[in-house]
Amino acid sequence: MGTEDLNTSCGCDDSEREILERLHAPILRILADGRPASAAELARATALGEEQVAAMVGRLSLAEVDGSGRVLGLGLSFIPTPHRVSIEGRHEPLYAWCAPDALLLPGTVGPAARIASACPATGERVTVTLDATGVAEVEPPSAVVSFVRVPDPADRRATGCDHMHFFASAEAAAGWLEEHDGFVLPVAEAVRALRAIAESCNAALLSRAGEETTEHA
């Protein structure tokens, strides 16, 4: 498995990158505060016009929105998934769309987080504690993350994200590997690789997230 494989699996979408650079971190911060992200609140957070923000949200193909156009999820969500994420300093837990989102996105909101998931093969509980330096603790230590090698760009969530899980061990992931064109990485290695890709792909997003985390601490 090389860097190109992981970048293809989890890399950014050029068509939506500019919007994500402006809106993703504010959306996640608002969600972590326990409320949907409205165009009005995002406009205040970004100094953009409310109509402009609403149009930008409408162009985010994977964003989960309610009937009023408020964002309920974008990588991290109010809508339950197998991956529960508790972010330090935030009262409301969120749910990650996939294991890579759970490992990467909490860093845009707070310095530390705890992930609770379950191995889809064995049912064993998998927990990960993250801090600013990376992985602080993994239980069981043998846990790995699965990655789909080439998701369909037309629907990255259904063909990629929905199949990226925490497994209790590489052995537990053997059946998944037989059924998918993918690979697995130990949790700590996955975090290092994901952060490296994010830094090169969404440098502006991560920089803005760090500034906003400091401002709203």
Results as ranks from 00 to 15, higher is better:
37 A>E: 03
81 T>S: 14
68 S>K: 15
116 A>M: 11
109 V>A: 08
44 R>S: 14
44 R>Y: 02
135 V>I: 10
54 A>L: 02
127 T>K: 06
51 E>N: 14
32 A>V: 09
79 I>C: 04
39 A>E: 10
17 R>E: 11
126 V>N: 10
14 D>H: 09
130 L>T: 07
118 A>K: 13
33 D>Q: 14
123 G>R: 13
78 F>H: 01
49 G>F: 05
47 A>G: 08
145 V>M: 05
126 V>F: 07
138 V>A: 12
106 P>Y: 08
41 E>D: 15
95 Y>G: 08
67 G>K: 08
107 G>T: 11
61 S>M: 13
87 I>P: 00
14 D>Y: 03
8 T>Y: 03
84 R>L: 12
131 D>H: 10
64 E>N: 06
75 G>K: 00
136 A>H: 12
122 T>N: 12
103 L>P: 06
28 L>I: 03
19 I>K: 03
37 A>V: 03
143 A>V: 07
10 C>L: 09
110 G>S: 04
64 E>C: 01
107 G>E: 10
25 A>M: 02
114 R>Y: 02
126 V>E: 10
9 S>T: 00
77 S>G: 07
28 L>G: 02
11 G>D: 08
60 L>T: 05
34 G>T: 04
59 R>A: 14
60 L>I: 10
85 V>W: 04
77 S>T: 14
146 S>L: 07
109 V>M: 05
68 S>M: 10
53 V>A: 08
95 Y>I: 04
13 D>V: 11
5 D>R: 12
97 W>A: 11
86 S>D: 13
31 L>H: 05
104 L>S: 12
79 I>F: 02
118 A>G: 10
136 A>K: 15
14 D>N: 03
4 E>F: 07
128 V>Q: 08
51 E>G: 11
111 P>W: 06
118 A>W: 06
111 P>F: 07
140 P>S: 08
26 P>D: 04
39 A>V: 05
123 G>Y: 10
107 G>W: 13
117 S>F: 01
60 L>Q: 01
86 S>P: 00
63 A>T: 06
127 T>V: 12
93 P>A: 01
146 S>H: 08
124 E>W: 00
92 E>F: 14
69 G>F: 00
124 E>M: 12
62 L>D: 15
50 E>F: 03
10 C>V: 14
41 E>Y: 09
29 R>V: 12
73 G>R: 05
143 A>L: 06
29 R>W: 03
69 G>E: 05
87 I>M: 00
115 I>G: 02
25 A>T: 02
67 G>I: 09
21 E>L: 03
106 P>M: 11
26 P>L: 01
142 S>C: 04
115 I>R: 00
27 I>P: 03
57 V>Y: 04
144 V>F: 05
46 T>W: 09
96 A>I: 01
142 S>F: 07
91 H>D: 15
138 V>K: 05
108 T>F: 09
20 L>H: 09
129 T>S: 15
134 G>C: 09
121 A>P: 08
120 P>Y: 08
4 E>A: 14
46 T>L: 10
87 I>R: 00
26 P>T: 02
45 A>T: 01
66 D>A: 02
121 A>L: 10
29 R>I: 15
24 H>F: 09
143 A>Q: 02
26 P>F: 01
